[in-house]
């Protein structure tokens, strides 16, 4: 178990190095940051001076090495555009994204699993069929369209919820939260639904498919033949067996919730890291882009790691057993 965790950790580090390399090399093609920094009235001397100042005159491997050196210490350099340390900017923005992702993920998992179980157990009922048909919408509509649709209905037509921003936030010193004010809570509803809808329908469909599969197995039949209650059979025996593949997908989805927050944050002008990244692209703010990509890949990798470890908790067959006899 420990050896497995260490091995996975080692693999994760390699993944991060590769991601960093790819991301960093790509930035050479997105445009010249010096252009946007100096404006039109610049001299060749200015350009040269700024290039040296930013270290852009150095060969690529050196740049990458310096980037890594800083990154290990949590130092991603200075934003070209805002002139402040990138780590500071991201630390300010991250709570907004994490809160949004958290609420979406919780909504997606709760409703996804509950509806998945419901549609599997009542697989021929009209309610289950209606839910299944509606879930097609969630799977097929693109995120930005859902966002705009929700804004139109709940913000423009009904005027119940706000269409942009986080509402009032409370500063806890190291974390600015929108959970503590009414406007903050109201503001998170639409973006969270927008961001989580696809994941919810996906989780629901996977739970349903897995559950149907599991309900056909012999051990479920045997559990019923032993006279166990419906609850014990469905939720004790079937659900736990359903969870293994569901956890994989859910884990991956949480990673992509954070990554795809970019679109939702743009639609709702949500002041998180996704919006920060979009703006950084426009201004070729390489330090911010690099830091963002590293952050996302760290999250992906650690979520995957957690998912792998969860398997061990759920499925005893994976645990190495010393008392086997």
């Amino acid at each position: 178990m420990l050896a497995f965790a260490i091995r996975r950790m080692f693999q994760s580090i390699i993944v991060l190095l590769v991601v960093g390399l790819v991301a960093f090399s790509m930035f050479n093609f997105v445009g010249d940051p010096v252009d946007s920094m100096l404006g039109q009235e610049r001299t060749d001397a200015d350009v040269e001076r700024v290039r040296i100042q930013l270290g852009l005159d150095q060969p690529f491997p050196v740049q990458y090495y310096k980037f890594l050196q800083g990154a290990v210490k949590g130092n991603f350099g200075i934003s070209y555009r805002q002139g402040r340390p990138v780590s500071q900017i991201i630390a300010e923005r991250l709570p907004a994204t994490l809160e949004l992702a958290f609420v979406s993920a919780v909504l997606a998992i709760i409703f996804g699993v509950a509806l998945g179980i419901f549609t599997a157990i009542r697989r021929n009922g009209w309610a289950a069929n209606t839910i299944m048909s509606l879930s097609l919408i969630g799977v097929s509509l693109p995120t930005f369209l859902i966002g705009i649709l929700l804004i139109y209905i709940f913000a423009v037509e009904l005027g119940w919820l706000s269409s942009f921003g986080r509402g009032d936030v409370v500063d806890l010193g190291w974390w600015r939260t929108g959970f503590l004010t009414k406007s903050g809570l109201l503001a998170i509803i639409l973006p969270a639904i927008t961001l989580g809808l696809y994941q919810m329908t996906l989780i629901m469909r996977i739970v349903r498919a897995e559950m149907l599969e599991v309900l056909r197995t012999d051990y479920i039949k045997f559990a019923r033949a032993r006279g166990l209650s419906k609850r014990a059979v469905n939720f004790g025996h079937a659900l736990k067996n359903t969870m293994v593949p569901v956890i994989t997908v859910t884990g991956m989805q949480i990673g992509s919730i954070i990554a795809f927050a970019i679109i939702t944050e743009t639609v709702f002008q949500w002041p998180g890291v996704g919006l920060l990244f979009i703006n950084a692209i426009r201004f070729v703010d390489i330090p911010i882009m690099a830091a963002y990509l590293m952050l996302i890949s760290v999250m992906f990798v650690s979520i995957n790691l957690i998912v792998d470890l969860l398997y061990f908790a759920i499925d005893p067959r994976l645990r190495l057993d010393k008392t086997k006899g």
Partner: peptide, 22 residues
């Protein structure tokens, strides 16, 4: 349901799949 297991029990063909693996 109260009869199942209590009055009438059933054993299936394949013991490898009759027990919940988890």
């Amino acid at each position: 349901r109260p009869l199942r297991g209590k009055r009438i029990a059933m054993i299936f063909q394949d013991p490898l799949t009759s027990l919940n693996p988890l």
